[in-house]
Design a protein around this nucleic acid. Sequence first.
DNA 1: GCAAAAACATGATGGCTGTCATGTTTGCTT
DNA 2: AAGCAAACATGACAGCCATCATGTTTTTGC
Lengths: 230, 230
Amino acid sequence: MVDCLLCESRHKSIFCSLENGELLELTQNKGCSIIRKKQNIFKEGFYPHGLYCLHSGKVKLYQMAENGREQIVRLAKAGDVLGYRALLSGEQYTSTAEAIEESTVCFIPKDAIMKLIEKNSSLALNIMRLLSGDLRKAESKITDLAQKPVKERMAEVLLVLKEIYGFEEDNQTIAVTLTREEISNIAGTATETSIRILAEFKDSGLIQFDGKKIKVPDLKKLLVAANVHD
Amino acid sequence: MVDCLLCESRHKSIFCSLENGELLELTQNKGCSIIRKKQNIFKEGFYPHGLYCLHSGKVKLYQMAENGREQIVRLAKAGDVLGYRALLSGEQYTSTAEAIEESTVCFIPKDAIMKLIEKNSSLALNIMRLLSGDLRKAESKITDLAQKPVKERMAEVLLVLKEIYGFEEDNQTIAVTLTREEISNIAGTATETSIRILAEFKDSGLIQFDGKKIKVPDLKKLLVAANVHD
DNA sequence: GCAAAAACATGATGGCTGTCATGTTTGCTT
DNA sequence: AAGCAAACATGACAGCCATCATGTTTTTGC
């Protein structure tokens, strides 16, 4: 069992404003479990009974489309919370959370988290900020999907992956391992297309392959390829 | 000046849980103005100084894409609030709010609304629910844009318009007037394409044109065309 | 009410990108 | 270590849909 007071992510998470007493209460109320790669934390269509907090690992949130293809709508790393969208709106989960590498997650029952939100208005504000940020990213993705060609979207996906998971110690290897299919399911394109475009990026020196990982020697070049100006 | 206590939307809005004292304070602090068609309430890139509450009228929120085309990301009707995403995250507006018909809008200064949020946890919860709902819609739109053909998306746009603005008294005319270009900017397609598809829908009896408005004699048919199963 | 602009409409064309097919490589499982 | 499945890769092909062009209708501003 992980102690919230000792959690490394504590100060970077939505719980950064909690007092020790509140954190202690959290620790006493929560559960903790190991999620292996490809296992689900929650599934689309089910009702939420609490909030998940990702202590370590990496998770993808995806929606299953009519045609059977996954659309990845969010990615989570250590310190991120999961399942708040459905929990707060009182709806079913609209996406499935699946570990893309072995992860540990804590589960905070609905009662406990809702009480905390009511008492602690700065936690409430943090959650609003979180949702607002998610909404900004989602809406910007809508615009991209509607207006940008696949190649630009692919470059942007790499930039997003770097934003979320950062580089490894070498300062140029994106610190996450995804299959080409998963990358396609972020970009919103066919697997073959993403394979082709990544190969093209490699040939033009934009990126390099390092096993399953992707190296970005020059971020600026990627920014140009993604056609983003800010 | 509109009195919040007398506002018709009061009980359907995020302010439904406010006490009379709080509403009075709101009324005293707020401003009120008329926004003519095609005028902006706020513009992408600017910093928010408060929250807008749409007392009457209809508003589109759009992002300007690199190629100069607008992507409509949200639509608002009387009773809806505007500008909360940027206000709560402390970021610049990421979309422009433009009246699609003459509207009246109240402005609540940042201080006033933030104090209310801190005091009234059920207002805070309502805002979280609002954001969660927006996020659900946005993510579902991402999946649609990535996976569905234009024709299905167009049908879905009509369903969404009906959801938001409802039918007129005849129970089949969608109660909003949009140009073909605006409809395209919701669906994420070229204007010519949306014109063609709407004409096709008309020819196959899915919809009828009533001036600039669109009539839907049979919602179920549209649901089938949109390929939604829930 | 008239001119100009915006909106609507329709045809032709081409390219992007999804799909299908096939083969190779990688990585698990027993 | 062999065998099998998943992942990666590449070519061929077609079709959806954006773009361009052009013309008509409707709306707007003076």
